[in-house]
Design a protein around this nucleic acid. Structure first.
Lengths: 213, 213
DNA sequence: TCAAAATATGAACAATCCTCACATTTGCAA
DNA sequence: TTGCAAATGTGAGGATTGTTCATATTTTGA
């Protein structure tokens, strides 16, 4: 909450640059804008989110919104960036100490559960990662995030299976991670019961792959 | 190619109904509309596709477009439906005769290769299935298609592993299939070389799962 | 032959993203 | 304190684009 990386970082990769809020006042307003956007996304999805509505709910003018965000997607991007930063720390912590097969098994299993609960509970996160395929900038962010997360997994695998070609382990980790995200998206788009079964099946499949050979 | 299911079938699930083309003339025009849309999607993606441009390129008025398609998404949907129908026949044929592990291995491997090549070669298909996450109707179509395809796989598994609980096999087949689609989408969004490696890794992972126990 | 149904048309409407010229507030050096 | 430059705030209006609808034309079938 303290620093809240300026939304400008998003624009560097997304659209024409905007000013970063430098004053206390504007920083608070940007927070309100993001909060309003978040609420609206939770209610109706990011596609139905209207810029005018975001401004109104944040108590600012439409012009102020565009002072800090170059376009609509940049707002979603800024929210997405926060989620990735948050979850990355959590994943790193969960996998850091793992050094044997049992450790990996329980750590990975728990990680999947946490992610699944997160997807079920956070409509905003769910919406954002769903739109990932359509929006190029979001897709890039997700890929970068996924690679970073996969690296933690790769590190564990390298310790567990030093004999295997590192490049192969990297590919495996990345694929397993991406499959996990896909499994989550699938799971939340079907009946809860079937979703649970699918996540459990993914867990088995992933662990079989991670611990194989 | 012969009947080309009237685009109306899409609307039943998507938006307000439109007239189905009943005359030869209008059927040909609808074909031109779809062809124009397909070309535009291939060039710029379905998001950048403009209704006015579709009409112009098809040589019809904008009003005629809306005579047969209730909205923009319905056009994409109609194209998607054709792809699913086509590929489903191909998949059914590939898996129909499989009755042992080796057969499954080679059939599945070939199927993945075909799909991968298709994804690489068909920008329209690629674009449509990418937007799948964002568009609810498309997502439903993809899920239904995926379930249908997974059923062919389930049938094979039931023959190969009669001792296992059928419900488990269904879940496995559905998950493996969805993971495959996710792997394809991932593969085509990274460098070709890495994409190839990822698809190969998926193939190994999927076969390990399908032939396990 | 002719009326009803089907089809064709495109100007106009409506929704919405985003810009811009101008007003206000804040930070800070003199 | 004062004054000015930089930062911030505003909202009407430009621009794009999906969609409708009143009207005109063509086809069908009796």
């Amino acid at each position: 909450m303290e620093d809240t990386a300026a939304p400008v970082s998003a624009q560097e990769q997304v659209a024409s640059p905007r000013r970063a809020p430098s004053q206390q006042r504007s920083r608070e307003r940007v927070e309100r804008m993001l909060a309003a956007a978040s609420a609206l996304i939770a209610e109706q999805g990011s596609d139905a989110m209207r810029m005018g509505e975001v401004a109104e709910r944040a108590g600012v003018s439409i012009g102020s919104l565009y002072q800090f965000f170059p376009d609509k997607r940049a707002i979603v991007w800024a929210l997405a960036e926060r989620y990735t930063a948050e979850s990355q720390a959590c994943i790193s912590a969960a996998l850091a100490g793992v050094s044997d097969a049992e450790g990996l098994q329980s750590a990975f299993s728990e990680l999947v559960d946490i992610y699944y609960r997160l997807f079920l509970a956070e409509p905003v996160m769910r919406d954002i990662w769903s739109g990932t395929q359509a929006d190029k900038a979001l897709r890039q962010l997700e890929l970068a995030d996924s690679r970073a997360n996969a690296e933690f997994l790769t590190a564990v695998l390298k310790r567990l299976r030093p004999a295997v070609d590192p490049a192969t382990l990297e590919t495996t980790a990345f694929l397993v991670w991406q499959m996990g995200e896909a499994a989550m998206r699938l799971a939340i788009s079907v009946e809860r019961q079937e979703g649970d079964r699918l996540v459990a099946a993914y867990k088995r499949m992933a662990l079989r792959e991670l611990l194989a050979e």
